[in-house]
Design a protein around this nucleic acid. Structure first.
Length: 319
DNA sequence: TGCATCTTTCCTGGTT
DNA sequence: AAACCAGGAAAGATGC
């Protein structure tokens, strides 16, 4: 996420991270616009009067404050003005259409928009995780509650329950879990599907992960949320999120190249709340992935890496 | 509390 | 010379 400060988009040209805007913001030229236009102010305006760009800012804000991957929101579905957005989200009339179009984060977007529409504005911390992380009260047995949380059975307030937005993967899984709870055919993650199809081919790491997952009340060790390689992968999979930072060299082989190495490092540092992150340090962490076969060496090419056999979720046919 | 994991930080030396 | 790469060593942060 290219944001500066708390949930405010970094639109200062001097910072060089957001020179490029998504293709679908073409209607909003980057020159000759009134001062403050790109500053957004979307939260001070009723959604009905948002421009396409302010709609986009709102989406970015939700991604950032809830620490979601951009993959949770199909941005192309939201190349619309605020007026159109509001018409998409009329309660009970267009809600199914809206949540379908909004993908895995549909309920979050819908709830946020409803609140904005009724309040007319929102403070910057509305929908921040702290407001959403609520202990589910139906389960009073701590062990049950623990397993509920660990298995990512998360609930959205708009369903009369609560949302625990741990990270984007969790959130996306929660949508699947909700589908399961509603007796819909649940989507199976590419990882699980692959492992089930080829159990003999699993690596020791994956075997460990599978064994961990099989334990009823244990949680995979993941000290700091999203791993670096997942962060990199998510940037690659969502170029509209971070245009021009990293690009695929060979999509089918998982080869990619850093275009703005320091910018990526700063972004990673921002995610980890570490302002002193540099590409030097980031690349050291990347090199540790060679041993674990999450990345493979690409000899002789600067700033080029390749996903290894233990990296998941980057292949086109996995998504 | 100790251990395991995943970085983060610092470093030296090599390559482009 | 600057940027990048490789990898050792140690420490920090976090979860179990």
């Amino acid at each position: 996420m290219i944001l500066e400060g708390s949930g405010v988009m970094n639109l200062n040209p001097g910072t060089n991270l957001l020179h490029q805007q998504p293709a679908w913001t073409d209607g909003y030229p980057t020159c000759n616009v009134p001062s403050g236009f790109f500053g957004g102010q979307w939260h001070e305006i009723h959604p009905q009067y948002w421009t396409k760009y302010q709609v986009w800012e709102w989406l970015q804000h939700l991604l950032d404050t809830n620490q979601l991957d951009a993959s949770c929101i199909p941005f192309q579905e939201f190349d619309v003005s605020g007026e159109h957005l509001c018409s998409m989200s009329l309660p009970d009339v267009s809600r199914p259409e809206f949540t379908r179009a909004a993908g895995t984060a549909g309920q979050l977007l819908y709830s946020s928009l409803q609140q904005l529409k009724w309040n007319g504005q929102c403070s910057s911390d509305v929908f921040q995780p702290a407001h959403n992380v609520v202990v589910k009260t139906e389960h009073t047995d701590p062990s049950v509650m623990s397993s509920w949380k660990e298995e990512n059975y998360l609930y959205d307030t708009s369903y009369g329950s609560t949302v625990d937005l741990l990270d984007s993967k969790t959130f996306c899984r929660a949508q699947i879990s909700m589908a399961t709870a509603a007796h819909l055919p649940a989507a199976e993650s590419p990882d699980l599907k692959k492992e089930r199809q080829h159990p003999s081919a699993e690596s020791p790491d994956l075997k460990k992960e599978r064994e961990q997952a099989a334990k009823p009340h244990t949680k995979k060790h993941n000290p700091r949320g999203t791993h670096l390689w997942e962060f990199i992968r998510d940037i690659l999979l969502n170029p509209e999120k971070n245009p021009g930072l990293i690009k695929w060299e060979d999509r089918s082989e998982g080869v990619f190249r850093f275009l703005k190495s320091e910018a990526v490092a700063q972004l990673w540092g921002k995610k980890k709340n570490n302002s002193s992150m540099t590409y030097e340090k980031l690349s050291r962490a990347m090199r540790y992935y060679y041993k674990r076969e999450i990345l493979e060496r690409v000899d002789g090419r600067r700033l080029v890496y390749k996903f290894g056999k233990n990296a998941r979720g980057w292949r086109e046919d996995e998504n």
